[in-house]
Design a binder for these strands. Structure first.
Lengths: 104, 104
DNA sequence: ACGAACCGTAAGTTACCACTTACGGATATA
DNA sequence: TATATCCGTAAGTGGTAACTTACGGTTCGT
């Protein structure tokens, strides 16, 4: 276990990290492959992958000298739960607004 | 329409902004009320609210001298769509992994 | 009309973090 | 064994953005 787990929202808050994550979501990819797709260096990708790993958004498996990264459902579950609670507030607002309009 | 719309992922990437958004999701609140709930100054809250507005995550309505902010479903829809596409990749990974295990 | 409450923006500072280069370890290939 | 590929981390730097204080505008109450 890592000493400090990063928040998945904060992790995906960075544009480069979001690009990396989107590529991984398409299919599992190696570090070098990701670096070739992005306008940043390979070490930068490595550092971003570490953040995504600490946020439980990706997992790794070693295949030869390459490290294949793929999406981890754990972090996605956290995001979905948070998002659902946000939706609760949004719907409550719309409901209240509708009631005010129908009965002023 | 604003000249430049901020990405909702980037907007919620900031911890303070996420706290503000969570409070608004509970119920619509004024700027001063939000500032009292957070460890930052009122102008800071104002700046964060602007970012959330540009990301289509909140809307405002003036009530007297106060500006009441509430959740905007538009930004939430974007987040949900992105999240769903991420889930697609995650499920595909799990499926492929299961197939490899059952038929090596 | 006057003070108070509520708020947005401008300006300036500081801390952080995204990025680079440099280096070394691990594994496959010849 | 030697070489190449793939990768992580350390160290250092620059830019940015999150915050503060200061100021001025708008609306409500008296």
């Amino acid at each position: 276990m890592s000493t400090y787990a990063l928040d998945p929202w904060t992790a995906l808050g960075d544009p480069s990290r979001r690009q990396i994550f989107e590529r991984i979501a398409e299919r599992p990819r190696s570090v070098t492959e990701l670096a070739e797709l992005l306008p940043i260096s390979r070490p930068a990708v490595s550092q971003h992958l570490r953040a995504l790993r600490e946020a439980n958004l990706v997992t790794v498996r070693a295949v030869g000298t390459r490290r294949i990264h793929q999406v981890n459902p754990d972090g996605l579950r956290t995001l979905r739960n948070d998002l659902d609670s946000y939706w609760g507030g949004a719907l409550a607002n719309l409901k209240e607004l509708a009631e005010q309009e129908t009965q002023p």
